[in-house]
Amino acid sequence: MKFGIVRFPGSCDDIDALQAATRVGEAVLLWHADHDLQGVDAVIVPGGFSYGDYLRAGAIARFAPVMAQVEEFAREGGLVLGICNGFQVLCEAHLLPGALLPNVSLKFVFRQVELEIVRADTPFTRARIPGAPTPRLSIPVKHTTGRFYAPEDELDRLEAAGQVLLRYAPGHNPNGSLRDIAGVCNELGNVFGLMPHPEHAVDPLSGSTDGLTIFDSMRAHVEQHVLA
């Protein structure tokens, strides 16, 4: 199982994502200007400030050469995970529904939040934490532009179609996201974006290892469906 982590100019969580993925499989960095995904089994678009986030977060990065390959990989059913800025990039690329707007507070938020797993039967959430009493994850957020938005009828459709995979637990919505949505997937279920940072919650030293659930789920899915 090999993860590929995209590195744009301005990415800053690429190494944490690389190290997190390395805990469950192999992982390599993919350069934004390359046209080659190096045969990876899953792609992670990491957090940061791709191309400076000039204009809008993710607006310019979505046109990076490597993104054409990522889009093709996604169309063919490959697993693509977007974290924070990566989520913004995938929304701008129309690989995911909705958009991320500035936090209602207009302030940068950096805190640990509790997330409710809405669906635990997806390639990104299937590895439940053994023994956990409730299907919750404790994972940090750190962003200024994380307010998930989609028109009301689109939100209804996303919920009905089971595309909302993670919600902020009551009282934990850090940015004013509509319907407390923290993470959504595409219709096919193979592209997933979330604002919280699972790659920052993989070592007991940092207080929680709940983030491993996401990477371990992806590994399990790929080993069962792709490599088997």
Partner: peptide, 8 residues
């Protein structure tokens, strides 16, 4: 395509 995001 670039200058705005028509969704928002």
């Amino acid at each position: 395509r670039l200058l705005t995001n028509p969704l928002i």
